[in-house]
Amino acid sequence: MKAHTGPVGLISNPGSGHNRNHFERIRTRIGQCPQIHHIVTDSPADIKPALTELAARGISVLAINGGDGTASAVLGELLESGLFATSPLIALLPGGTANMNAGDIGISGSLRKATSHFCEWCESGRDTTDKLAQRTLLRVVTVDGQPPLYGMFLGGGAIIQGTEYAHREIHSRGFRDDFSLALSTLRTVWGVLRKEPLYNRHVAINLFLDDADLAQHNTLILAMSTLQRLAFGMRPFWGQEPGDIQLTLIEQHCTRFARTFFSIIRGRPSNNAVPSAGYISHNAQKIRIELDGKLNLDGEILVVKGPVEISASMSLKFLKL
């Protein structure tokens, strides 16, 4: 048995997806666990003071109760600020809407069950045997002089229409987690297959992988991630190169879209998933893209015009329960 010792800190965003309906119940359960120092944030401006307080307390475990955007904002501040001499062990609770990050490297189950499971872990021997995973984050710089953004998934092309559809038609009806992401993915694929103009807008992207030369693509779908498992078990990356950032790009002229797409998201790309047919997958440590359009960074829409620099952060250690 490998036990993890030291104080535990938890940062909550009560305005995130599942927390909006269940936060008082979650707060009560956390309050019953004296090992946890709980800080509730009301805005992104509260994140740095919260981390400063937890660093002063010498925490060795940092739990985050919020969505993918909250987790990335907290972890980005942790990486940029240098407040911790040694990075704490990270525990992600599924308190948001999509919870894709927690689904890969966090505490599984509903928010109530995940919170109870984490509290029980804190109250017991804190065994970490076979419960640890390491991941980097995407460090995204869109404009010179602006603070970098962080996330674990970056998407473009038809993913933007799928995201906007999810915000407009799915999340507003109360659907959350993998189910909501599955619905938005199916709607996107249906739109592409029917050649609906909204879903078939190509995005001209100039792509630089590590130190390779420029490659130009008329892009239908762009996806990058440092996760191993995306929503509802998708594993759409099959590049073999070294590098923490996984990239898949599907071009506008791709052939046999439906059959090839579903083979890709199952993690078993068909023989048609090759560059000559419009399907590219590659791993890298740094990526530069140039475009005029929108990107989805962990569910948040970014409007960009010009170069975007994406690099892998230092690796963090996550608790999986």
Results as ranks from 00 to 15, higher is better:
3 A>I: 12
5 T>M: 14
7 P>E: 12
10 L>R: 07
10 L>S: 07
11 I>S: 08
13 N>P: 08
15 G>R: 00
16 S>G: 06
17 G>D: 01
18 H>M: 14
18 H>N: 14
23 F>H: 06
25 R>N: 10
28 T>S: 09
33 C>W: 00
44 P>S: 14
44 P>N: 14
45 A>N: 15
46 D>R: 09
47 I>K: 03
48 K>F: 12
49 P>N: 10
51 L>T: 06
52 T>E: 14
57 R>H: 15
64 I>D: 08
65 N>W: 01
71 A>W: 03
74 V>C: 04
75 L>T: 08
80 E>D: 15
83 L>H: 10
85 A>H: 13
95 G>H: 01
96 G>H: 01
100 M>Y: 02
101 N>C: 06
103 G>I: 02
104 D>T: 01
106 G>F: 03
111 L>M: 14
114 A>R: 00
117 H>G: 13
121 W>T: 08
121 W>V: 07
127 D>F: 08
127 D>N: 15
127 D>P: 03
131 K>M: 05
137 L>C: 10
138 L>W: 11
142 T>E: 00
151 G>V: 01
152 M>C: 13
154 L>W: 05
157 G>T: 04
159 I>W: 06
162 G>N: 00
164 E>V: 10
166 A>R: 05
168 R>M: 08
175 F>H: 04
179 F>P: 01
180 S>G: 05
180 S>N: 04
182 A>N: 01
192 V>D: 01
196 E>M: 09
198 L>F: 09
199 Y>L: 11
201 R>L: 12
204 A>G: 15
204 A>D: 15
204 A>R: 14
205 I>A: 11
205 I>Y: 11
209 L>S: 03
210 D>F: 02
211 D>M: 05
214 L>V: 12
218 N>C: 13
221 I>L: 14
223 A>P: 03
224 M>A: 07
227 L>R: 07
232 F>T: 00
237 F>W: 06
239 G>L: 12
241 E>G: 09
242 P>Q: 02
243 G>K: 05
246 Q>C: 12
250 I>Q: 04
251 E>F: 07
251 E>G: 14
254 C>R: 14
254 C>F: 13
258 A>S: 13
258 A>V: 08
262 F>R: 00
272 N>L: 13
272 N>M: 12
273 A>L: 04
274 V>M: 10
275 P>T: 13
280 I>H: 01
286 K>M: 08
286 K>W: 04
289 I>P: 01
292 D>A: 12
296 N>E: 04
298 D>F: 04
298 D>S: 02
300 E>H: 03
321 L>H: 09
321 L>Y: 03
